[in-house]
Design a protein around this nucleic acid. Structure first.
Length: 441
RNA sequence: UCCUCAGUAGCUCAAUGGUAGAGCAUUCGGCUGUUAACCGAAGGGUUGUAGGUUCGAAUCCUACCUGAGGAGCCA
């Protein structure tokens, strides 16, 4: 342990280029170290980047050199030194070390488990709290941040008001089989929300154009690379909007989000080895196809799908791999859609719903559509779906007091992150994924 | 819930029914420009659990546990 010079300015690694030739101190963690006799190269990590340091035995007090030489991975320390442009270093800059204060040396009895080598999924998932320190996870989480911020910016810039909806709900949105149940004092049951939509409809009647953004929960026993039990969803809802307007907004929104990531997160996409040429193609117009045409298309390509059933496992892949940009598929059979979905005025056997399918096999990232605004039709559908009318009294009220055509959609953030980052599995898209069989850490 | 595959050193993996091994990690030694550095040495194992077959089981059989991939359902 040695004192660091208090006159050196404290900076982050991301700021280093602006301090070339200056003496600074950087607090961080030891990412890796390479030794070559009387010169050692500790690589420092501080959350903003990596900095190769150069510690030369002849330029340092004996105890400082020895403490650096025997430092263990993820030990915390503050290094002081001079920043220098260096083509041989990974980031283009490195630090000539003049002093180092070791805050904690990680014990060799119990070394940091995640080495710069290969690890299996289970090992990493059990250590998700540590895995987040790695470069790849940084890139993904930063892209996620950009996606979330651009979702908010898009709606904020287009006349939407953020009106958040409750997490605890008294009843189901679409049946109770996929809801997490919990006790809400005494004997009452509450459920974790699986969508803010019904409340957003109330908010849209109050504010015109609204969106909510928060976590949603599905107790589905789905064990696939596309499912989480807790995931984030952004859900815009618009009064006076018909299906065509909803499709227009969904397309414009997706183009904006992808464009923002391409604009601001090139470095991260490079770390992830994402083929950005595929993302550059996300431009208007998206492919537009009705459900009925999609079924015909699928049958011609060998699918066993029949009109009236939902897309099966490979169907979305067969569909999307024919095109290089997202698809808008609309007018699904009314029978397989939620009770609130507005039937087509001329062909009531199909509903005015729309899904956005991402290309490259990523499939559905957005689902939405126009909601029923006619009070009698809504009551009839509630009965047909055998839903408890009392639970929907407030929802029915929205059709009694100045009902108007309206609708919106929801985008699953993690699926969007997986697509834009080009990830194999959704588990890496959220800091602490919650899945069937995975609640910890 | 169903189907398929896999559990061997801290990690990633070898080992055809016959003495349980390598690379990385850790410790020690060497090296003044390394890029997942390299070279040398050391320590590290009840082969997921329980039972069975066999002279002999990491290997074959049965059950269970854990994980992965997929199906159904969905964003």
């Amino acid at each position: 342990m040695t004192e660091t010079n208090t006159t050196a300015k404290r900076i982050t690694i991301s700021q280093a280029s602006a301090f070339t030739g200056q003496r600074v101190e950087i607090p961080g963690w030891l990412y890796n170290i390479r030794k070559s006799g009387k010169i050692v190269f500790p690589i420092l990590r501080d959350g903003t980047g990596l900095m190769q340091c150069v510690a030369v035995k002849s330029n340092l007090p004996e105890e400082v050199f020895e403490s650096l030489k025997h430092l263990t991975q993820e030990s915390s320390l503050i290094v002081t030194g001079t920043i220098r442009a260096e083509a041989r270093a990974a980031g283009g800059f490195e630090m000539d070390v003049e002093g180092a204060q070791i805050i904690q040396r990680v014990s060799e009895e119990d070394p940091y488990p995640i080495t710069p080598k290969e690890h299996g999924t289970e090992f990493l998932m059990d250590r998700r709290h540590l895995w987040l320190r790695s470069q790849r996870q940084h890139a993904i989480i930063r892209v996620r941040h950009e996606i979330i911020k651009s979702c908010r910016d898009y709606f904020d810039n287009n006349g939407f008001t953020l009106v958040d909806t409750p997490i605890f709900t008294p009843s189901a949105c679409e049946g109770t089989t996929t809801l997490f149940e919990c006790n809400y004092f005494d004997d009452e049951k509450a459920y974790l929300t699986q969508s803010g939509q019904l409340y957003s409809e109330a908010n849209a009647m109050a504010f015109g154009k609204v969106y909510c953004f928060g976590p949603t929960f599905r107790a589905e026993k789905s064990k696939t690379r596309r499912h989480l039990t807790e995931f984030w969803m952004v859900e815009p809802e618009m009064a006076w909007a018909d299906l065509e307007e909803i499709k227009r907004v969904a397309e414009e929104f997706v183009i904006y989000v992808v464009g923002r990531v391409l604009d601001k997160r090139r470095e991260e996409l490079k770390v992830l080895e994402r083929d950005t040429a595929k993302l550059e193609l996300v431009q208007s117009p998206f492919i537009r196809m009705s459900y009925t045409d999609a079924v015909k298309n699928l049958q011609e390509h060998g699918s066993t799908i029949e009109w009236g059933s939902d897309f099966g496992g490979g169907d979305e892949t067969i569909l999307t791999q024919q095109f290089d940009r997202p698809m808008l598929v609309d007018r699904f059979p009314t029978a397989i859609k939620a009770f609130y979905m507005q039937p087509d005025y001329d062909h009531p056997e199909v509903a005015l719903g729309v899904d956005v399918l991402a290309p490259e096999g990523y499939g559905e990232i957005i689902g939405g559509g126009q909601r029923i605004h006619d009070p009698e039709l809504l009551l009839r559908r509630i009965e047909e779906h055998k839903l408890p009318k009392e639970a929907f009294d407030w929802y029915i009220d929205l059709r009694k007091y100045g009902t108007v055509p309206h609708g919106g959609f929801g985008m699953g953030i993690e699926r969007a992150v997986a697509w834009i980052c080009g990830l194999e599995h959704i588990r890496e898209t959220i800091p602490f994924p919650r899945m069937l069989y995975r609640l910890r850490p």
